[in-house]
């Protein structure tokens, strides 16, 4: 049991963070809060990948002349790092577009509260 927790506590924390993000996106009424929830979900997903790249006793994936390249156990796995670099960029740009939409919504309705927006879109 203790081994399980020691090996997986990072995953548990990240799942918790993922749940918090989903909760914020569904329950919070302010659009900015929804965007924050979105960024939390993305961070949690990215961290899961990073955790998967970790190796006990591995060093960072930059070649060190003193450490042999032949034994891959001595370096961390560079693949998830690369993928997550891309994923971070994607996350940032998505946030940028969501800000653009939020500003656009505010221009039209002068509010960012979801309930009020739903009411106003219905009544027209």
């Amino acid at each position: 049991m203790l081994e399980l927790i020691e090996g997986h506590y990072a995953y548990f924390f990240l799942m918790l963070l993922f749940m918090i993000g989903i909760y914020a996106m569904m329950m919070k009424r302010n659009l900015m809060k929804k965007i924050m929830g979105m960024s939390m979900i993305q961070s949690a997903t990215i961290m899961v990948w990073i955790v998967s790249a970790y190796k006990d006793g591995g060093t960072i994936p930059v070649m060190d002349p003193n450490i042999s390249l032949d034994n891959p156990d001595l370096y961390l796995n560079p693949l998830p790092h690369t993928l997550m670099l891309t994923a971070i960029v994607v996350a940032v740009v998505t946030l940028g577009v969501s800000f653009a939409l939020a500003v656009s919504v505010y221009r039209n309705y002068n509010t960012l509260d979801e309930n009020e927006l739903l009411d106003r879109t219905k009544e027209q």
Partner: peptide, 24 residues
């Protein structure tokens, strides 16, 4: 498996020490 291959051959293939950069 891609990860191990990258570690072993990144410097050989592109003369660049930073593996993340080569993979990227």
């Amino acid at each position: 498996v891609a990860g191990a291959y990258y570690i072993q051959n990144a410097y050989k293939d592109a003369k660049t020490p930073n593996m993340v950069c080569v993979v990227l």
